[in-house]
Design a protein around this nucleic acid. Structure first.
Length: 294
DNA sequence: AAGAACTCCTGTTGGC
DNA sequence: TGCCAACAGGAGTTCT
């Protein structure tokens, strides 16, 4: 699934065709994704105008003219595709949507009043959609205990130290925990820790000193988290298997990975003779160089 | 109550 | 070629 940079790329792709546009028809093709769709999902979305398309961490938030917000999460394999008016019927074979295999996991289709069709496809169905009153979005179950946005001005070494102080979990798990910093996932945690030369197995608590103030490690890490996310957004995200921007474009940040997916390959740090290794932490792959990450 | 393990689901890949 | 295990951008739930 998409991490923050991929979700932001999707948002930027959808915004021009969805923001300010009315949903003329909504097709919901199954009762649930990861969770059941909210009651009367079609009735509550059809006919509404999307007044704003925003993002919080890895979630998309479409505010509707009804006063409700459509909250969407892409899980691991969720994807949106945009088809412009007349596109799919003009030359059918050219479009994957006419291929039964490709459409097998098309779970929701938004028909927009401008003739555009936006389809949500998700083979693994770890994604979900929900509707909540727009003025209660911040307190809803998805966001109530969620941490700060890493690209906002709240992210600082002091914040990270305050959150990490006294924790016995490792760096990797700490940074993946959305209750602290929201939006990082497996790829960008690996990449940020590599850039900060921090061993993913190191205790999160070592980001703070005994007084709970940031250590040099925290000072080093914070700007690098921002950098890696900003660079990834500028590259249109990372394309591995499932992910594409809504307009079908491929991101290219994967070419800039220093460690992710590079097990057995040489470390890219100048002068380092180390090799990228893969270990399992919390059931997920971690890629790092034990020679330069301490 | 923090932290780790288990779970959901389908598709792809690599080794034999 | 087939078969099977391992793995995949996440995170809620359930254990210890």
């Amino acid at each position: 699934m998409p991490e923050l940079p991929e979700v932001e790329t999707v948002r930027r792709g959808l915004e021009p065709v969805m923001a300010g546009v009315r949903l003329s028809k909504v097709e919901q093709r199954r009762p649930n994704l990861r969770f059941p769709f909210p009651d009367n999902f079609v009735g509550r979305t059809e006919g509404q105008e999307i007044t704003h398309l925003g993002r919080r961490a890895k979630y998309l938030i479409a505010e509707l003219s009804s006063g409700e917000a459509l909250i969407m999460h892409l899980g691991m394999s969720g994807r949106f595709t945009i088809e412009m008016p007349g596109e799919w019927d003009a030359s059918p074979d050219q479009f994957a949507h006419n291929n039964a295999k490709a459409t097998a996991h098309d779970h929701v289709v938004f028909h927009l009043e401008n003739g555009v069709r936006v389809t949500y496809n998700d083979p693994r169905r770890f994604g979900f959609m929900d509707l909540v009153a727009t003025d209660t979005v911040a307190e809803c179950r998805h966001f109530a205990v969620m941490g700060i946005e890493p690209l906002g001005n709240q992210l600082s070494a002091a914040y990270v130290a305050g959150r990490a102080a006294g924790r016995s979990t490792d760096m990797k798990a700490f940074l993946l925990d959305q209750r602290h910093i929201a939006g990082l996932g497996n790829i960008y945690v690996c990449e940020a820790l590599y850039r900060a030369r921090l061993d993913p197995r190191r205790l999160a608590g070592t980001l703070a000193n005994v007084k709970g103030k940031p250590t040099v490690r925290a000072e080093r890490l914070v700007p690098l988290i921002r950098d890696v996310l900003n660079e990834a957004i500028a590259a249109g995200g990372s394309t591995l298997k499932d992910y594409r921007a809504a307009d079908g474009a491929l991101g290219y940040f994967q070419h800039a990975f220093a460690v992710y997916g590079r097990e057995g390959e040489p470390c890219r740090t100048e002068g380092c003779r180390g090799m990228v290794q893969r270990i399992t932490q919390a059931g997920r792959s971690t890629f790092f160089c034990s020679r330069c990450q301490k």
